[in-house]
Amino acid sequence: MRAAFASRFDADNPLAALTVGEQPEPAHPEDDWVTVQVRASSINHHDLWSLRGIGLGADRLPMILGCDAVGTAPDGTDVVVFPLVVDPGDPRGMSILSEHFPGTFAERVAVPRMNLLPLPAGLSATDAACLPTAWLTAWRMLTTKGRVDEADAVLVQGAGGGVATAAVALAVALGKRVYATSRDAGKRERITQLGATALEPGARLPERVDVVIETVGEATFDHSLKSAAPMARIVVSGATAGHEPKVNLRRVFAMQLEILGTSMGTPGELTELLTFCAEHEVRPVVDSVVPFGRIEEAFARLHSGAAFGKIVIDHTA
């Protein structure tokens, strides 16, 4: 079957390690696994990290990439694939598709039956394919970890990427005052169109916020601390600009701040997110929809840093 996979690693030029070609049909490690015909998927930075050799061992090459998918189950129903798989061989007890088990950038993918969630009416395959990784991470950051229901104002650092842009859209839909930073003037304009107040990195906010969504890391963390109201939650799911920031511990304890780490979410949280998006007519911010035959172009756009929102792969085109 046709697939996009990591054939080797290249830390400096991950695009050179991407191969599109034939791969074996999906195998079923256990009896409760099923094969899904993939209709749409979306790219995450995790896929570029895999091509660099981060989180993926050479002994698992070639590895089909991709975490997110919407497709058709064996019984003909439309399903969203939850991408985390129970994995006794991983220290965390589970792994994401494309780490130990082949991913979703293929005509078909095998997953445990319990990982299949119904596609809600009103959500297209291309929209729903954006949700299982980046949007689920943002949802968990805001709700489970950030307790945004107790908040009035939210700061999202580095909006433009998949998780941060999702956090902006979701926080606005949840009725919060949202501030978001970006170095790019064009992205700040797009952020404003989503209903948030767009700011340059490090800019003083009109008010302190109750929840900070932090995916940037070292470059923005001091600003996150200074922007936090007493007893605020700073929720961290990434460190794209440095993972060892200096932290003013006096500010942390004096302001009673919570610094919380998270990644991904649970099947229940993904179900909540799917329902929320369907019922409130919230749609993912989609940068572009690319036919599978041009998937190399999709990877190149993500790697360039120019994308605003999610890049979706249409497997039917």
Score class of each variant (00 low, 15 high):
Phe82Arg: 03
Phe299Glu: 03
Gly268Leu: 04
His46Gln: 12
Met264Asn: 15
Thr316Tyr: 09
Glu150Thr: 09
Leu302Ser: 10
Asn115Asp: 01
Thr165Pro: 02
Ala121Tyr: 03
Ala278Asp: 02
Pro88Gln: 06
Leu194Tyr: 02
Val172Phe: 00
Leu155Ser: 05
Val247Ala: 09
Gly103Asn: 10
Val109Cys: 13
Ala164Tyr: 03
Leu194Pro: 10
Gly53Met: 11
Leu84Gly: 06
Phe82Ala: 03
Gly160Ile: 06
Leu131Ile: 01
Gly293Arg: 14
Gly309Ser: 05
Met1Val: 13
Gly217His: 06
Thr197Val: 15
Gln157Cys: 14
His46Trp: 14
Arg250Leu: 13
His100Lys: 02
Phe101Pro: 05
Cys130Ile: 01
Ala254Pro: 00
Val38Lys: 12
Ser288Cys: 08
Ser41Phe: 14
Phe308Lys: 11
Gly146Glu: 13
Leu65Ser: 05
Val247Asn: 10
Ile295Met: 13
Asp314Trp: 07
Ala129Thr: 09
Glu279Trp: 01
Ala159Gly: 06
Ile54Leu: 15
Thr104Val: 07
Gln157Val: 09
Gly57Thr: 12
Val86Arg: 14
His243Pro: 04
Leu273His: 11
His280Ala: 09
Arg113Val: 07
Leu174Gly: 00
Leu270Pro: 03
Ala6Met: 08
Leu97Lys: 02
Gly186Cys: 09
Gly55Met: 10
Ala171Asp: 06
Val80Trp: 00
Glu189Gln: 15
Ala203Ile: 09
Ala254Phe: 15
Gly21Val: 13
Ala307Asp: 04
Glu281Val: 05
Ala239Ser: 15
Val156Trp: 03
Ala3Thr: 09
Pro112His: 03
Asn115Val: 06
Arg183Leu: 07
Arg147Trp: 08
Phe308Ile: 08
Glu296Ser: 13
Ser227Cys: 06
Trp139His: 01
His100Gly: 11
Leu155Ile: 02
Met1Gln: 13
Val86Glu: 14
Asp90Gly: 01
Leu155Glu: 01
Thr266Tyr: 03
Ile311Leu: 15
Met141Asn: 01
